[in-house]
Design a protein around this nucleic acid. Sequence first.
DNA 1: CGTTATGATGACATTTTTGTGACAGCGGTA
DNA 2: TACCGCTGTCACAAAAATGTCATCATAACG
Lengths: 233, 233
Amino acid sequence: MSQEKTILIVDDEAAIRDMLRIALEMADYRCLEAADSQQAHTIIIDERPNLILLDWMLPGSSGIDLARRLKKDELTASIPIIMLTAKSEEDNKIQGLEIGADDYITKPFSPRELVARLKAVLRRTEGLTPLEPIEIEGLRMDPINHVVTLDDSPLQMGPTEYRLLSFFLTHQDRVYTRGQLLDHVWGGNVYVEERTVDVHIRRLRKALTTHDRFIQTVRGAGYRFSVKLVANA
Amino acid sequence: MSQEKTILIVDDEAAIRDMLRIALEMADYRCLEAADSQQAHTIIIDERPNLILLDWMLPGSSGIDLARRLKKDELTASIPIIMLTAKSEEDNKIQGLEIGADDYITKPFSPRELVARLKAVLRRTEGLTPLEPIEIEGLRMDPINHVVTLDDSPLQMGPTEYRLLSFFLTHQDRVYTRGQLLDHVWGGNVYVEERTVDVHIRRLRKALTTHDRFIQTVRGAGYRFSVKLVANA
DNA sequence: CGTTATGATGACATTTTTGTGACAGCGGTA
DNA sequence: TACCGCTGTCACAAAAATGTCATCATAACG
């Protein structure tokens, strides 16, 4: 299960888009529908990309305006942007960096360079999770060292169980269906059997051994993580 | 209150120096005396700067030679360098990065861009170069003499392994993804496969032989250096 | 009770991730 | 020139995690 990243391409030249798409898909990235020239200033997508490749020159609305608007909008401000500029436009790169683009690439560029820079930008913005440790009833999860302890003794579990526990700790006292758990913990667009959730719940329970009272089964509905003991309904 | 960083400016144009000084001081950095054209090849300072801004073109001795010498000298090898290049020299940027400069900026640049890049470089190299020797459990790193010993017997390792260990020693008990390690240890603008990290982790582990328990693999996440933590999560 | 629906559990093949040895390129040096 | 150390990448081995299934246990309900 590779952690797939999605890239949004905004360019009005179909040839460039195709080239980008091929390069990106070879590197295991998923491309979102590239906005064409006319709608470039009103991109509507129903999925949040991990990164935006934005051409500097867009007819109607210039790429830099678009970038500025994206960076202003709360919803999109945190998405890193890489600007594509023609060589003659290179002077603009400073302006591009100033308004918040995370990198720029001058055309023509090699696919390899593109992917390399893209990786660098993604990696730079990736590790920005200075989350606070969570502790309840002796169960402590510290995302900084990626360690779960129960009464100070470390617990061992797989990555999926870790994510599952992480989700539960931040969403306590509420019942989630298997489908919802798949959405939140596995990620939206994966196809796995709902029963798989049962197995991982089992594995997480085993990892928590003595404290498996935390995870409650709600028959016919799903699972709930809670410190309080709640009667099922 | 702010942890003051000192920047050494090496440029023969007084106008540039003044501009840099103003920009840097506005951003709360402290500037060291800029070497002028004549002494550029024999910088003598009595304070160790946190970063060096180095002009590519220096009369008498070219900036790149100076950079190379700085990177060779044990005392200064660990100080990050940002090269300033004129636009026409941009082809040289690759060469600059190759000899060990941590970033480059092409003139003309905005003060804002300068500070942004400078911050990025400082952030990456932060804590990477302790001035005091560090010792834990018989493992001792002496940054001044650039020597690592284990129970008083010297260990041999390559430069990359040394930097990796140096980073780990100053950032213990915390998981870093391969990408983050590339960012901090290799530098932000190198394009290297993430698996390369694995290989260097292996080489470092081999160099530490008996104490390879320090470097822990956190499956699905990255690596962690720690004396105490044992179980993964 | 008996029947049925739903969850728990152990086993297992497959996939993913990491460890490891080898190798070619590069720059420095004898 | 030949040699040497370091580096990044690769191919393959090893290890761990994952998803699915068959089967068992239990709750719900008549």
